[in-house]
Design a protein around this nucleic acid. Structure first.
Lengths: 218, 218
DNA sequence: ATTACTAGTAGACGAGTAA
DNA sequence: TTTACTCGTCTACTAGTAA
């Protein structure tokens, strides 16, 4: 289908041409389509010819309405848009495996976190985290992740030390289930920590400096 | 914007060109667009020229990605469709009362805005705005509001300072009339500013962190 | 005011082809 | 294989104008 037809149909639909006849002169349609009155008039004749609209010629002004076929045409375009914007429940991040400070692993294997991970993520993390330094061009995507709810892992105190609340976001690396763990009060940086049931470096045969892609569910 | 551009952008977006570069030869694009390889190649050059896409020329095949401007273009078309098919003349947004930076209140109580508010909204706003951080699941609805006409409040200059054009959208919070005010050149964020004849926090006994629902007329 | 014809023109398209 | 140039054709547009 020619995109110029759906463009015109959409403008008519916006004026209510799906529900009922709308009064719409060729001049007005021309303005909406950014073209001359003459071309808009021709466009209307084409749409009539394709049976995408029906027309009721009044004495002064014509009244136009979309046919079921016309409605179908723009509905199809609408569902293309929905496929683009609504199925996008996954964020792909790319980055480089980095040496952690070892701190992440220490935190994560605290029993206070472990039980919650098991309950909320469905797996018991391997003792240790995988650190990924996110590529510069993907850093902005971190904001989207930070602003998504995720699974809240509550803080606790143990041996006189307090462990803060963190948020876990379910993810996958090469189809292996894992999760990105972000401390609630983290400063914005470009390194994420990943927990997984398995020893990711060994299971995937990856090591420092290797490029990986991680898919995060939002 | 020319509909043939958005048509091509949409096809690229469907292949994942919003998130990342997609391998897409001019022949393949030509097939998707039902045109020749030569014309598709030309279309790509036009889109590049309009800065709607960026390209990475590989040795064998090119990789194409939409620019933010390109994404904006098709998002606008998407929200037109939503206005057509999600035929609600009212949009319900939910969010949390947030501390403003105090700036909103300063802007709004400028006499240049106040007189227009009174004239176009039918009430004189209380000096100060209520900030609401919109829930994540409702953020996409903001696009619909942004693309709806609303009441234009013109900018002006005062004391050597210029105040930009803003758009007011009539709304209600628990049956109290108010309006959402959006600066024309606002960056996309998830916080809206609400003006009202009354002191909303006091009148509704609400405060920071409280959840509220606001109904916006479109 | 409308709609829509004709005529002339600018631009979009594809074939052929080079790199 | 790719991308993308030139060039000829043909379509799509607008201006002028009739009804």
């Amino acid at each position: 289908m020619d995109s110029k037809y759906t463009f015109a149909l959409r403008k008519i639909a916006m004026l209510g041409g799906i529900e009922d006849y709308v009064v719409l002169s060729s001049r007005e349609l021309g303005e909406a389509l950014e073209m001359s009155q003459q071309s808009a008039s021709k466009r209307i004749l084409e749409l009539l010819d394709e049976k995408l609209i029906v027309r009721d010629m009044g004495a002064r002004k014509q009244r136009i309405k979309l046919t079921p076929k016309g409605v179908e045409e723009i509905k199809q375009e609408y569902s293309e848009y929905r496929r683009i914007f609504e199925v996008d429940d996954q964020i792909n991040l790319r980055g480089v495996i980095t040496d952690g400070m070892g701190e992440g692993g220490y935190y994560i294997c605290q029993i206070g976190y472990m039980t919650q991970f098991e309950e909320k993520l469905g797996f018991k993390p391997y003792e240790g985290t995988l650190n990924i330094t996110i590529d510069r061009e993907d850093i902005s995507k971190l904001d989207i992740i930070r602003s998504s709810p995720g699974e809240t892992i509550y803080g606790f105190s143990s041996e006189g030390r307090s462990f803060g609340k963190v948020v876990a976001h379910k993810a996958k690396i090469k189809s292996i289930e894992c999760a990105v763990v972000i401390p609630e009060r983290s400063h914005y940086d470009n390194v994420i920590e990943v927990v997984c049931q398995y020893h990711l470096r060994r299971t995937l045969s990856i090591g420092n400096g290797d490029h990986v892609e991680i898919k995060i569910k939002v």
